[in-house]
Every structure is written in C-alpha cells, then in structure tokens.
C-alpha cells in the first residue's frame, strides 16, 4: 500500500509543479482580492485531476499488470487509489485552511464561520465527486471515463436549472441545514459503496 502511494506521488512530480504554480497564483489572487472562492474552486478541481492523472500514467505504462505480478493484492490497488484521493483531498483542505485563516484574521473580510463551512464544502464536494468517478475510472479507463466525468460534473447543475425553470421551489433553508448536518454520514456511505463497486470491478478485470 505504502509503495503504491509513493509511486502515485512520485509519478506526479511533473504535474505537481504545474499544480503548485496554479495554486500559488490563485493563492495570491485570493489574498489580494479577499476572495477565497476562486482558490476553493481550483483546489477542488486539482484534487479531482490528480487521481485522473495518476490513472493516465498507470495506463500508459501498464502499471496495473506489473503491480499485480508483485506481492500486491487487487484489494490493495483499489484501496491505494482511494487513499491517494483522500490524501490529496486533505492536502487541498489544509491549503484552503491556511489561506482561509489568513483571510479571517488579517482582512476580516470573511467570518470564521463562513470560512469553516467553505472548508467543509471543499472536502465534501471533492470526496463526493471522487466517489463517483473512481469506479468509472476502474471500469472504463481514463480515455472513456473522461467524458462520463464531464457528464457527472454538469448533470447536477443542468438538472437544478431545469427544475427551477419548471417552477419547482428549492428546499427551504431549514431543510438544507438539516441535509448539511447529515452530509458527512451520507458521504461516508457514498465512499464505502463506491469502494465496494470499484473492488468488484477490479476483481473481474483481466490484464
């Protein structure tokens, strides 16, 4: 497991530099305009892109075939992908936290409450999204999954807009708050189901 994680991080060396540059840019942007939103958006995006990139490298070098010829059970390969996603997600949250704290204490543009919710939202959205796309990546590979991921990303917003157009009212703030309290539980279930699905896909795969 540790070996596989190290491999994923090392494989990203090249891309990592680009990611860091982007983050630095948005970090400066965030500080100078007192706007956490853009940085948060970027962090979520990058957290989703990183696993995708490792997948692309794995496929290109046929890593899975090789990994499975070593003392690495299939379960570990699947687990390591989730662990990698969680780790990048955590790193992303830590980054947002650093800038968020800076904004809360120095510019006082956002309240600590607002910051706290933003932080949780970053984690939540990222994890929710990852639990949807990781099984897709295992099933279809990067090439095909890419397009499906686009759909997964846009479908909810398109649906929301459509529903609003049809005159449907969104849930009231009370319900929303209740839902947000339940969301950690919901996320955990989602991740667990996602892992189980990925595992069963991967167990059937031939290399």
């Amino acid at each position: 497991m540790k070996g596989l994680l190290i491999k994923d991080f090392l494989a990203l060396k090249q891309q990592g530099k680009i990611f860091l540059a982007i983050l630095a840019f948005y970090g400066i942007y965030c500080i100078s305009f007192d706007n956490l939103g853009m940085l948060v958006g970027m962090v979520v995006l990058i957290c989703v892109m990183m696993p995708l990139t490792t997948w692309a490298y794995d496929e290109k070098s046929r890593w899975d075939k090789y990994a499975l010829s070593m003392p690495v059970p299939r379960k570990t390969v699947v687990l390591s992908k989730y662990a990698f996603a969680l780790l990048t997600e955590l790193a992303g949250m830590a980054l947002v936290a650093v800038f968020g704290v800076a904004l809360v204490f120095y510019s006082k543009e956002i309240s600590s409450e607002e910051f706290f919710y933003t932080l949780l939202a970053v984690g939540g959205i990222g994890l929710g999204f990852l639990s949807l796309i990781i099984p897709l990546l295992f099933k279809f590979g990067v090439e095909k999954a890419r397009f499906i991921i686009l759909l997964v990303a846009f479908l909810p917003s398109v649906l929301l807009i459509l529903l609003q157009d049809m005159g449907l009212q969104g849930p009231n703030p009370e319900t929303l708050r209740l839902l947000s309290y339940l969301s950690p539980l919901f996320l955990m279930v989602m991740l667990w189901v996602s892992y189980k699905i990925s595992l069963s896909i991967y167990n059937k795969k031939e290399f």
């Binding site: 491999k7 090392l10 060396k13 490298y57 070098s61 890593w63 075939k65």
Partner: peptide
C-alpha cells in the same frame, strides 16, 4: 514484461 512498467517521469 516486454515494456517498461513505470511512469516515465520517475
């Protein structure tokens, strides 16, 4: 195997 199995940036 007949090809290198490691990501190229390593």
């Amino acid at each position: 195997f007949d090809e290198s199995s490691f990501p190229e940036h390593m």
